[in-house]
Design a protein around this nucleic acid. Structure first.
Lengths: 341, 341
DNA sequence: TTGAAAGCGCTAACAC
DNA sequence: GTGTTAGCGCTTTCAA
C-alpha cells in the first residue's frame, strides 16, 4: 500500500494524497477529509517515513549521542532525569527520540547518523568515532556537560558548585579531615586511589572541575588534600561506590568529611557507614552531588548540590527546536542542605 | 557526498562502492580495502541509511512500543531494567533502538512505524492507535507483559507469583489482617480505594492477575479481603505510593500485612511507616513485587518476588533476532525472602 | 569484477 | 485546486 497505489484507487493524483497528509492548505478541507477517511478505511496510514526522509532530507528524529553503552543510561539516576527531560520535550514537539550508543560505534558503521535531523551530545566523546561522523554531517549539534567551541552547549559550573558544597561541609566541622570519592577522575576501570601527579591533571572534565572546587575549598580552610585520600570510581554505580566507601571508611585515622562526586556514591557511603556502625552526621559528614530523587529519602537525607538534570535535557531540545546552535548556557546549581552534613 | 559522487571521484562504478560497504564477497579484498581507505579520506562514511532502508526495506532499527509517555520509562526501576536488557542485546546485534511513545501517537501520525524492522510491545496497548498501525505493517512483533494470540510473547505468571509472596506473608503472622496497595487496578488517575464490584473484574491485566493471586492466598488462609482495604495507585511512583501508604497506615484497626504490587510501592510504605513510628516487620509485614535493585537496600530490606526484568528484555530481542515470532515464553519468578515480612 | 539502469515511496516544482 | 514528473541515495539484477 503506497501513496501511488492509493492515489490510483481513489482516482486522484499522487500530489493530492501527499498534500492531504502533509500540506493541508493545498487542497479544500472537504476533499482532504474525504481522502483521509478513505485512506483510513483502505488501511493507508500516511507516507512512509523512509521515503519521505530521503526526499525531504529530514526525518523528525532527534538523536542523543551517549558516551557509554545504552544500558548504562537506563540505570543511572542522573541520566534518567536528563533523558526524561529530553523525552518529554521531544514528545511535545512531535519528534522521535533515537538514543545512539557510544559503544557500538567502534564496530560496523550502520550509517545511522544520517537519520536524525539534529543531535544532543551528552558527555565528552574523546574516543567515539560516531561523534566525528556526526560532526561531518554538518547537522545542528548541542553538547551537554562538555564544551566544543563550534557548538552550542549546556553546562553547569561544576567547580563553583563543588566549592560551595565542600565549603559548607568543611565549615561545619571544628577539625575537618576530608576525603574524596571521585567519579571518572582518571582513565581506569578499577576502583583505586589516584597518584600525586594525577592530582594536578589539567583536563577539563566534569570530574576535574569538581575536584578543583573541592581543592579550592580545602585550601581556604587550610586543609591538606593529598591523593591518598582521593578515590577514583570508574562508573556511577552503587556497587562500585560501595567498594570505594569500604576502603575509605577503613582508613585510620578515619576522615570525618566525605566529599562525593555523585549522590549515588554518597548513598553508598551512608549504606556502608550504617553497616560499619559509623554514625552520620555525628562521626562523619557526607555530601553528594546531583540531587537525585533518592537523595531526600536516604537516612539521613543527603546534603548535596542540585543540578537540574531534567531541565538540562529540556533546554537542549529547545535549543535545537528553536534553531539556536551557538548559545553557551550555564545552568544554575543550588546547595541543598539536609542532614548528612 | 553520495555514493555516486564518490564512485565518480574514484573512477569506479556505484555498484563497486556499494559492494565494498555492504557485500565484501563481491569484490577482491585488495580493491575493497583500497576503496574503503579512499572513502575514509574523502569523508564518505558509508551509505545513507534512509536511502538504503528505502531500497532494502530494512533499517536495522528495532522499535519498542511503550504504553505511556517516554519520560515515564526513564523513571521506573522495572522499566529501566527491562530497557537496559533490550539495549544491551540490541547493541550486541549491531542494531539501533527506537523508543516509541504511547503518548504522542494520538496526535499527528509521523509514519514512524515504517522505520523499524520489528517491534517489542511492552504492556497492554488498549487505546493506542500506534499499536494498530504497527500491526498493520505486518512486521514481526513480540509482546511483553501481555498477550495477543497472533504474536509471540514474554510473560511471567503474575498470579502464581503474587500467591506465593502473599502466602508467605500471611503464614508468618498468627492473626493476619491484610491490605493491598495495587498498581493500575482500575482506570483512574487518582489514588483511591476500589469498590466491591470492581474487586471481581475479570480482565487479564497484570494488576488483576496479581490481585487474583493475593485473593487466592487470602482464601486459603481464611482471611476476608474486602475492597475497603484495596488501594488503586495509577502510576508506579514513590510520591503516589506514599499518599496511598499514608491513607492505609491511618486505618483503624491497622492491618498488619501490606501486600504491594511493586517494590516502589513497598519502599514508600517503609518510608511512611518510619515517619509514623510503625516498626517493620514487628508491627506490620510488607512485601513487594519485582525485586528492583533498591529492594535490597531499604531498611528493612524487602521481601519480594524477583522477576528478571532485564532478562525479559534480552529474550524479547533474541526472539526477534532469531525470527521466532510465535513462542509464548513464561519466565520464572522467585520468592526473595528478606526482612520486611 | 564491473557498469548500466530500474526503481524503492515520496515531495515539490511546475504546468495546467 | 489538481496532475505530471524529476529525482532524493541507494541496491541489485543483468549483461558484459
Amino acid at each position: 500500500m503506497t501513496l501511488k497505489s492509493v492515489a490510483k484507487t481513489l482516482s486522484v493524483s499522487t500530489a493530492t494524497i501527499s498534500n492531504a497528509f502533509s500540506r493541508p492548505d493545498q487542497l479544500s478541507k472537504s476533499l482532504r477529509e474525504k481522502i483521509l477517511k478513505e485512506c483510513s478505511t483502505l488501511g493507508y496510514h500516511g507516507p512512509n517515513i523512509t521515503a519521505r526522509s530521503l526526499r525531504k532530507g529530514k526525518s523528525g528524529v532527534l538523536g542523543v549521542l551517549l558516551s557509554d553503552p545504552l544500558s548504562y543510561y537506563f540505570n543511572d539516576p542522573v541520566a534518567n532525569q536528563f533523558l526524561s527531560g529530553i523525552a518529554e520535550t521531544v514528545e511535545q514537539h512531535q519528534k522521535q527520540l533515537l538514543m545512539l550508543s557510544g559503544a557500538d560505534s567502534g564496530k560496523t558503521n550502520t550509517g545511522i547518523e544520517s537519520l536524525p535531523d539534529s543531535f544532543i551530545v551528552y558527555g565528552s566523546q574523546e574516543h567515539n568515532p560516531l561523534y566525528n561522523r556526526i560532526i561531518q554531517t554538518g547537522k545542528p549539534i548541542v553538547t551537554v556537560d562538555f564544551d566544543a567551541p563550534e557548538f552550542g552547549s549546556i553546562n553547569v559550573d561544576n567547580q563553583a558548585a563543588a566549592y560551595e558544597v565542600a565549603s559548607y561541609a568543611l565549615k561545619k566541622r571544628s577539625a575537618p579531615h576530608a576525603a574524596i570519592l571521585g567519579l571518572r577522575l582518571i582513565h581506569s576501570e578499577r576502583v583505586c586511589r589516584i597518584t600525586d601527579d594525577e592530582l594536578y591533571d589539567e583536563s577539563e572534565s566534569v570530574a576535574r572541575r569538581r575536584l578543583n572546587g573541592y581543592k579550592q575549598a580545602a585550601e581556604e580552610s587550610n586543609i591538606a588534600l593529598s591523593s591518598e585520600l582521593i578515590w577514583h570510581i570508574p562508573h556511577n554505580t552503587f556497587a562500585l561506590a560501595k567498594r570505594a566507601a569500604k576502603e575509605l571508611l577503613s582508613v585510620t585515622p578515619r576522615p570525618n568529611i566525605i566529599l562525593c562526586m555523585s549522590d549515588v556514591i554518597a548513598s553508598a557511603v551512608l549504606n556502608v557507614a550504617a553497616e560499619m556502625g559509623v554514625s552520620v552526621p555525628a562521626e562523619i559528614g557526607v555530601v553528594g552531588f546531583d540531587d537525585i530523587p533518592e537523595a531526600s529519602r536516604t537516612s539521613p537525607p543527603l546534603t548535596t548540590i542540585c543540578q537540574k538534570s531534567k531541565e538540562k535535557g529540556k533546554q537542549a531540545v529547545l535549543m535545537l527546536v528553536k534553531g539556536d546552535t551557538s548559545s553557551k548556557i550555564l545552568m544554575p546549581t543550588e546547595l541543598i542542605v539536609r542532614d548528612s552534613a
